[in-house]
Nucleic acid binder design. Structure first.
Lengths: 150, 150
DNA sequence: AACAATTAGTTACCTAGGTAAATAAAATGA
DNA sequence: TCATTTTATTTACCTAGGTAACTAATTGTT
């Protein structure tokens, strides 16, 4: 009948975010906050622009989420040599707690994918990567421009 | 390396919503409003509970969206014989305009899936259906309890 | 009949994501 | 150099989705 791909896509997107939020609740975090922390852990200090470009969201979204993360002590922002940009760092507490959180999220994600074999997971990713290519914006890289792992 | 399934899932979910919103802009609609209208077109008049159960969202979300749809004249709500429930109907104008909108959305969705063959689309749906099954809540039916097509 | 429990819907409040417009710093060009 | 344009970030305001707590109607129980 009709195209249920997008219906299913949105359902699962929401559902998985809900589950991730459930786990993160114990740490006072939300899924999109975690995705920024994850990003910083992986790539080291980043400018806000690097973050939103990597996560493929708009700048104001990242501004807001970073404000919350800074207020709750997960990140720190310092002015760069270019005084327009703000460089974002994980706080020491974040560096300490992140491995544990990451492990819990990974375990959850494994659970959510339990019904899929490894090859099915690869298949799913590659099918997902093929959709929504109509606009140029839809592209993303695996690495941001310059990674500054400390 | 890490599990990129959910990263990809959220990206594409957001991206496709963005594209749908772009098309709906001309009609003063948003994607989740459209999904309710689509639902009403398909199944006829529904109670709010039938709507949120079918769309798999929480009741307050539907309340809010219906309020907007009613204010902008797309739907009408009447009290049922059970005076707790409100029965939702498409307005005459909605019935008139919906086919055109639906056609545009279908064309867009085809475009977003252009890189996938028919069998790949089926594959994608079936893979998506397999994930996030950890909780009982994650289930959904293709039809709500009782369809009242007028 | 009367009280308790369930059900439908709403309200208030939180995060997330988007657009448009503003600000301030840096880069560009005449 | 000084005006213009671009770039990084922010602010204000919109929709979407979630939880918790509330009201009102219905159902169940005694």
């Amino acid at each position: 009948m009709n195209n249920l791909v997008f219906h299913e896509l949105h359902q699962k997107s929401r559902l998985s975010i809900k589950e991730v939020n459930e786990v993160l609740k114990a740490y006072g975090l939300y899924s999109s906050q975690y995705s920024i922390l994850f990003c910083l852990k992986r790539f080291g200090s980043m400018t806000q622009t690097e973050i939103w470009q990597y996560l493929n969201v708009e700048a104001p979204t990242v501004t807001r989420t970073l404000t919350r993360l800074e207020k709750s002590g997960w990140i720190v922002r310092k002015a760069g040599s270019d005084k327009r940009e703000r460089i974002v760092y994980l706080s020491p507490q974040a560096k300490k707690k992140l491995p544990e959180i990451q492990q819990e999220i990974e375990r959850l994600e494994e659970n959510l994918l339990i019904a899929l074999s490894d090859s099915e997971q690869d298949q799913l990713i590659s099918l997902l990567k093929k959709i929504c290519k109509s606009t140029e914006k839809g592209e993303m890289n695996d690495e941001p421009a310059g990674a500054n792992l400390d």
